[in-house]
Design a protein around this nucleic acid. Structure first.
Ligand SMILES: [Mn+2]
Ligand SMILES: [Mn+2]
Ligand SMILES: [Mn+2]
Ligand SMILES: [Mn+2]
Lengths: 219, 219
DNA sequence: TTTCTAAGTTAGATTTGTCTAAATTTTATT
DNA sequence: AATAAAATTTAGACAAATCTAACTTAGAAA
């Protein structure tokens, strides 16, 4: 199955929406891909033709088994390149997503597997996301919840959901990265903001928008 | 100047033909790019519009200063990726050209320069070709001639002109790679084939087609 | 159940890059 | 110089991916 760059980006976004929302809609996918619903409908027909998605008009979109497998291979390449950029070329986590967005489309199993080996077969990427293996299998995510839903006080950052430069730069500025241990000082009901403290540094407050995108586990 | 992948491939091929042939013709470029002359004419108009080439119909094509600069940047990326693949991921020289053909289109100065640094700022690629620096300048090629034109008997392989898997695999099989020292035993006028000898191994004969693509310097 | 609105689809256009077939220009050969 | 051959360009078409504007459908509200 030979996919174009556009098709690969669609497949990957559909996978993402299947994981994070319930039901992949035309509009939702258009928003995710920064395109128009009409374009999504057009592409949906092509991907259905190629048996990568199930699609009946007005009924939403879902990946077939084959589509899911394709998605995982693209995600594997994306995340391996992110690791490469951070670990070998010294990029910061907010710079790598866009570059990986292009590098992921170089389709060569040999390249992918050699890269993985070169990196020591990493299992999580710089944003805390798991990396599928050559067969497309992902190690089970350690149990994690978003910071706004955390039940306990003392937590460790395990991943970041939103990969926008804006959020990642903000977190870096605040001293929050993967593995950072933090403590919830206070929750403010009014706007669901949270006051947190890292080590011995002064406490500070983050908005709900931010805390929703920080994944944590109790420590 | 934002170039598409197709435009970059054209620019690179035009540069190559300017270096290796006299005059870049529509048909020659079509052959080099494995496309049709009509397509070349179409693209020539676009590249002229973008001021990357000089082109008047029926008069052939040549790069402008800007076009040349663009070409050198693409070539830089291509050759750096080839180095990466060979040196870090353990690919052989016949495998890397096609992968680099794709990787070269990821346009990021930061990525390119970090990659170069990571590789120790190499100045020649796995095929013996010089790598332009960040400004697009190339270190002068050490004087070299193709094997079929060599005047002296004892020679060292400095580069390979043709990057096809077919030729590179052949050379590898025969034990010829960059730096290999060889001796010309005999030249056969009939078909311009050459008998050569590497170290103490038995001598063997190579065709003119092959010897034309092996660059050497006296040793 | 009818009506309204938001979501989704279709029709038709555009851009990029390509092609074939026909026409034109250049160049080589009588 | 006339003619033939080769190279090049043009005309018209197509596929991929996208868009806007108009239309249709599904689901919620009345
Ligand atoms: Mn992408
Ligand atoms: Mn990531
Ligand atoms: Mn290329
Ligand atoms: Mn090379």
């Amino acid at each position: 199955m030979n996919l174009s760059v556009a098709e690969e980006n669609y497949i990957k976004s559909i996978y993402k929406l299947e994981e994070t929302t319930d039901g992949v809609t035309t509009t939702g996918l258009a928003y995710e891909l920064d395109t128009k619903p009409a374009s999504v409908t057009d592409m949906a027909k092509k991907l259905k033709e190629k048996k990568l998605i199930d699609y009946e008009k007005y009924q939403g979109i879902s990946l077939t088994a084959e589509g899911k497998k394709a998605a995982l291979h693209i995600i594997r390449r994306h995340r391996l390149w992110e690791c490469f950029l951070v670990e070998k070329l010294d990029f910061s986590w907010e710079e790598v997503h866009e570059l990986a967005e292009e590098l992921e489309h170089v389709r060569s199993e040999k390249l992918t597997n050699r890269l993985s080996e070169f990196l020591g077969n990493p299992v999580i990427d710089p944003h805390g996301d798991p990396i599928p293996d050559a067969q497309g299998k992902m190690g089970k995510q350690r149990t994690q919840v978003s910071l706004d839903q955390a039940r306990t006080k003392r937590l460790e950052v395990t991943a970041v959901s939103d990969k926008s430069t804006a959020l990642l730069e903000f977190l870096t500025a605040k001293g929050i990265r993967l593995g950072t241990q933090l403590e919830i000082i206070e929750r403010y009901e009014f706007d669901n903001s949270i006051e947190i403290k890292i080590r011995n540094q002064p406490a500070f407050t983050i908005s709900e928008q931010v805390s929703k995108n920080i994944m944590v586990r109790p420590v």
